[in-house]
Structure formats: structure tokens, C-alpha cells
């Protein structure tokens, strides 16, 4: 039997792709300043144009409040607790609905992806309901759920459900079959084992994308949902502000919605890059 020393040894780094680990780490640690820079610049530009419009057109505050007025109102609402409380309420509504969507939608997506029968039966139903906007469900939501939290959560559920299901189906279907074979030859002896150890992790990036998109659509629907006899939330803040012609409150609400939307989305992106 030939022994080790007969085989010529070659350096291990044959074909090593990355040139250095420093380069790789450097890419990930772009500072917050670098990432946020463009956004701050954009904000400043908007504020400048806005202020110019105020000076040039001199509109009543109800139609277009000045940037300084909006900023003052923003800080007022922030300090009084109105803004954080309403933001928290809206955020928790969306989060709860989104979790329900995930709990229902991911297993459903898995089922559709793996069973032809299920796909033939369930898929047409999904395609029929998908185009119906969450807003169209509002009257029924009031009838069925009354004015409590469940009505609003129902609306957000409608908004969040479909991206999760569809992305789960896609993710599972596109799992490379050779990975499944590898799993089988490495001891995954039954369906559940193969599913949890190979199929699900392989599909996870897609599923996470679905969840990220879904949170976004849910967040966008929060205004509509909070027209369902709400007495709290950012959507309520906006509707209420409009009623008393406080456009500054309306804009504060809009800004809060925008900021939270961006923050949540970037948290998702961070998570995704850690996992995938």
C-alpha cells in the first residue's frame, strides 16, 4: 500500500477564490455614515425645495405647512408620547398579522409546493383572491369583526398573506434536487428529516424574502386598516389630523410611517445576510 510520502504534496491554496480575508471583511463593515449619507443628503434637498416653495407660494398652514412647523410638531408629538405610542400600536398590529400570515402561509406554501393535488386545488383559490386589495375587505371586516383589533389585523393579514405563500412555494420548488440526494446519502432516512435538515434550510432565503416583502405590504396597508373605527395608530393620527386640517400632523404621521418602514426593511436585510 503506498504511503503518504509518495504522493507529492501541493499547497492547499490551489484555486482559492478570495484574495484576502481583509478584503472580505472590509466589504461588510461599511460604516453607518457611508450607508446613511445618501439618504441624509436627499432629505436635505427635499427640505430646501420645500422651504423655497413655502416662501414663494405662501400657502396657508393647513395646505402646506413649513418644514420648521412640521419639525416642531414632530418633536412635540415625540416628546408627548403620542408618536411613539401610536407608532408602537400600528407596528404591533402589523407584526401580529404578519406572524399569523407566516404561521398559516408557510406550511400552506410547503404543502402546495410538494403536493400536486394540493396545488391543483388550492392554487386557483389563491389566484382568485390575490388581486383583491385589502382595502376592499374593509366593509366586511367591520361586519364580521366589529371595531376591535381583530378587524384591523384581518385587513393586514390579507395584505401580508400572499407574498409569504407564493415565496414559500417558489423557494421549496426551487430547492436543488441534488441537495436532497446528498441529504439522503448522508443519513436523512425519512421525509421529515430530509425536509427539516435540507429542504427547509435550502428554501429559507426565499421564504425570508417573502416575509420581508410581506411586512412591507402589511405596513403600507396600515393606514387603510386603521380607518376601520380605530382610535389609535399612525393611520388614525393621519386621518384625525386631516379632519382638523392639521396638515403638519398628517405629515408627521407620514414621516413616521416612512422612517419605520425603512428601518424595519433594513433590519430584515441585515438578518437575511446573516442567515443566507
Amino acid at each position: 500500500m503506498p504511503d503518504k510520502s509518495d504522493i507529492p504534496s501541493l499547497p492547499d491554496r490551489i484555486g482559492f477564490l478570495s484574495t484576502s480575508t481583509v478584503g472580505h471583511a472590509g466589504r461588510a463593515s461599511k460604516t453607518i455614515a457611508q450607508k446613511g449619507g445618501p439618504y441624509v443628503l436627499a432629505l436635505i434637498m427635499v427640505a430646501v425645495v420645500w422651504q423655497v416653495a413655502i416662501v414663494a407660494l405662501n400657502p396657508p398652514s393647513a395646505i402646506l405647512p413649513s418644514p420648521s412647523k412640521v419639525a416642531r410638531t414632530f418633536i412635540e408629538e415625540l416628546l408627548s408620547g403620542e408618536l411613539p405610542i401610536n407608532a408602537w400600536v400600528s407596528l404591533s398590529r402589523v407584526t401580529i398579522a404578519w406572524i399569523i400570515s407566516a404561521v398559516v402561509g408557510i406550511p400552506l406554501g410547503v404543502l402546495i409546493a410538494r403536493s400536486r393535488v394540493a396545488e391543483k386545488l388550492i392554487d386557483p383559490v389563491i389566484e382568485l383572491f390575490r388581486p383583491i386589495s385589502p382595502l376592499a375587505w374593509i366593509p366586511l371586516a367591520i361586519l364580521w369583526f366589529g371595531i376591535g383589533e381583530s378587524g384591523k389585523i384581518f385587513i393586514i393579514f390579507i395584505a401580508t398573506f400572499f407574498p409569504i405563500v407564493l415565496n414559500t412555494v417558489d423557494g421549496i420548488k426551487r430547492v436543488d434536487p441534488v441537495l436532497l440526494r446528498a441529504g439522503q446519502t448522508l443519513g436523512c432516512s425519512n421525509g421529515p428529516e430530509l425536509f427539516f435538515r435540507v429542504m427547509l434550510p435550502a428554501a429559507l432565503p426565499s421564504i425570508l424574502v417573502g416575509m420581508r416583502i410581506s411586512f412591507g405590504t402589511g405596513w403600507a396597508a396600515i393606514i387603510a386598516a386603521e380607518l376601520v373605527a380605530a382610535n389609535s395608530g399612525l393611520g388614525y393620527l393621519i386621518a384625525d389630523g386631516m379632519e382638523i386640517l392639521r396638515s403638519d400632523l398628517v405629515m408627521v404621521g407620514m414621516i413616521a410611517i416612512g422612517i419605520i418602514g425603512v428601518l424595519v426593511d433594513s433590519i430584515f436585510k441585515q438578518l437575511a445576510s446573516r442567515i443566507a
Binding site: 366589529g146 371595531i147 373605527a229 380605530a230 382610535n231 388614525y236 386621518a239 384625525d240
Partner: peptide, 17 residues
């Protein structure tokens, strides 16, 4: 307090909401 449309108040009251 629950904000709703003026026309809805009667309904919500009678349904017990």
C-alpha cells in the same frame, strides 16, 4: 372612544359593538 363614520354610529350601537 372609537372613531367611526357619523352614519355608522347607529349601527355600531344597535349591534352591540
Amino acid at each position: 372612544l372609537f372613531k367611526t363614520k357619523g352614519s355608522e354610529v347607529g349601527n355600531l350601537l344597535s349591534t352591540g359593538s
